[in-house]
Amino acid sequence: MRFLKLSPAYLLLLPFFIIMGVFFVMPLFLIVAYSFMAAGPYGGVVHQFSLDAYLQILFEKDFDGNLHFSPAYLEVFLRSVKLAGVCTLLCVLAGFPTAYHMATRPPEKRNLWIMLVTIPFWTNLLIRTYAWMLVLRNEGLVNNFLLYFGIIKEPLPLLYNGFAVGLGLLYSYLPFMILPIYSSLERMDWRLTEAAADLYAGRWQTLFRVTIPLAMPGIIAGSVLVFIPAIGSFLASDLLGGGKQMMLGNLIQLQFGFSRNWPFGAAASVILMAIVMLGMMLMARKAKDVKGLV
């Protein structure tokens, strides 16, 4: 690999390290520092070491001033993770066939498909979520349609529940799953699948034994792009879920808004970061072990 030998990895990584080092890692230090400070009276922080923010996540003072264990924030965290997981799964189920279809189009049509998949996202997310409200509400298109044809007698409750939130999340993140899968499938050596088919493996067998394993890098990349942002999302739960159940995104937003408790907001993000990073590293190690066995 002459090209890479001449320009060692660190040189290639230089622009990334410069930009991230200055404009991301430095602010990140600020966040970590905030999480160990005390909340300022008018928002912001006062420069004074404090662990209150971390204690607050698991323990709370009740109104009479007694400290006790409180699982409320833990619940919020678990709910967000669960919802993000469901969303990721749905995205894979809908995204993989779409990406497969795109990758098997004639080459000149493939970029067109990429554009087709992303163009709806030129419209603001808030506006698109609104449009879903128009579709799903009691007097919305779906219910009116079903009522008109007498399929149902009463409007179906499609809005302000878990179904609507799931639908909204799937809608917000689908392209972030489709495109990574597509880019790993696009170059697939279709002769492999043909060879498999020639060996009288069924289409489905070929899919599960050959295609999906080859598309794995794309599925993993897409899952990361969907799962992680979905944990912190709040628009879908606010607008389509009726704001009745808080997500991690809402909780953190609240600390930088009404609560004016920056250290708590920062601490919650630091913990979120730590947990997800740990999860990712464990998964990477596990993947390596599996690879090592094969």
């Binding site: 966040i31 990361v224 992680i228 912190g232 930088f256 993000s269 979120l272 990073m277």
Partner: peptide, 16 residues
């Protein structure tokens, strides 16, 4: 490190 910006809720990145 590459994936880290995804992990931090936007409002926190915004303030920082």
């Amino acid at each position: 490190l590459i994936m880290l910006p995804l992990l931090i809720p936007e409002v926190v990145i915004a303030i920082a």
